[in-house]
Design a protein around this nucleic acid. Structure first.
Length: 265
DNA sequence: ACATTGACCTGAGAGC
DNA sequence: TGCTCTCAGGTCAATG
């Protein structure tokens, strides 16, 4: 679930409910999710401080603690999410990090499969460099020319390229399928063999699909029926031509596409 | 440099 | 109902 649009929705939730509130207490349930820090350090950094702003890069969410120089970093793995609530009985089942604010409200980071990550960073730029993350698709510097360069540098399939966090940060299995569906490109097409026209269409589709997904709150039930996601299931049908969608593996990941509408080259 | 596989971790859902 | 099996939207490391 948690690809760029999902994380952007978590960011909106954080902005709306948690920014400006003062942390009274923190709780870490599974220390193994902590990356390069400890529960005690996290508590010391957060306690009595406010979350002052937020940011997102790819699938990572950042919340600045107090003034400059300290950010809480969250990655949601395969099943993580954020929940904000005011009633104690609403604590989600697999809460791994709980922030209790001085006004009684709480923010929970829930991660059932424990494949996520909780950490601290001094700066976002430093973190991004450290982790060798590629450009975020909503970075103003992400322009067609930059994308063409990424494509021509990639010798593998276009789907693998889209999901490669060190080239372009934020796209995962679901949205790579959606983007390729939108522009009629077969997921196994070699990234560096796309026509100039398809490079351009792919570039536009990356932005358009992610924007739409965010607008739909990354909730498949809200997606336009013309999108792949509502039909992305075993025996699902192509919303364009009605044919049964193909289900294959690309780069080891389950991939859905329409054999009629998505041809190689 | 790329594809493939398995590991990480846990639960949902299918099939018996 | 309960057991076992398979699979899942992320990432990393080992291997070919």
């Amino acid at each position: 679930m948690p690809e760029l649009p999902d994380v952007q929705v978590f960011k909106q939730l954080l902005d709306k409910n948690a920014l400006g509130k003062r942390v009274a207490k923190t709780q870490v349930r599974s220390p193994e999710l902590l990356e390069g820090t400890t529960a005690a350090t996290l508590e010391r950094r957060l306690k009595r401080r406010r979350l002052t702003r937020s940011a997102r890069h790819g699938k990572f969410l950042f919340a600045r603690i107090g003034g400059e120089g300290s950010w809480l970093v969250l990655h949601f793995g395969m099943a993580g999410f954020l929940k904000f609530f005011t009633n104690r009985s609403q604590v989600p089942k697999h809460t791994q990090l709980l922030l209790q604010f001085t006004n009684g409200a709480q923010l929970a980071y829930d991660c059932r499969r424990k494949l996520g990550e909780i950490g601290l960073a001094k700066s976002i730029g430093g973190f991004v460099r450290n982790r060798e993350l590629g450009i975020d698709p909503f970075d103003p510097k992400f322009k067609l020319a930059a994308f063409r360069e990424i494509l021509s540098d990639s010798r593998g399939t276009v789907k693998s390229m889209l999901m490669d966090q060190s080239r372009l940060a934020g796209i995962g299995n679901v949205y790579s399928d959606e983007i390729l569906f939108r522009c009629g490109i077969h997921p196994k097409t070699k990234a560096n063999e796309l026509s100039s026209r398809n490079e351009r269409r792919l570039f536009k589709a990356v932005k358009a699909v992610l924007r739409t997904a965010i607008r739909c709150k990354a909730d498949p039930a809200r997606f336009p029926n013309s999108y792949l996601l509502p039909h992305r299931e075993k025996n699902g049908q192509c919303p364009r031509c009605g044919r049964k969608l193909r289900q294959i593996k690309v780069g080891g990941r389950t991939t859905f596409y329409c054999a009629k509408d998505q041809k190689r080259r």
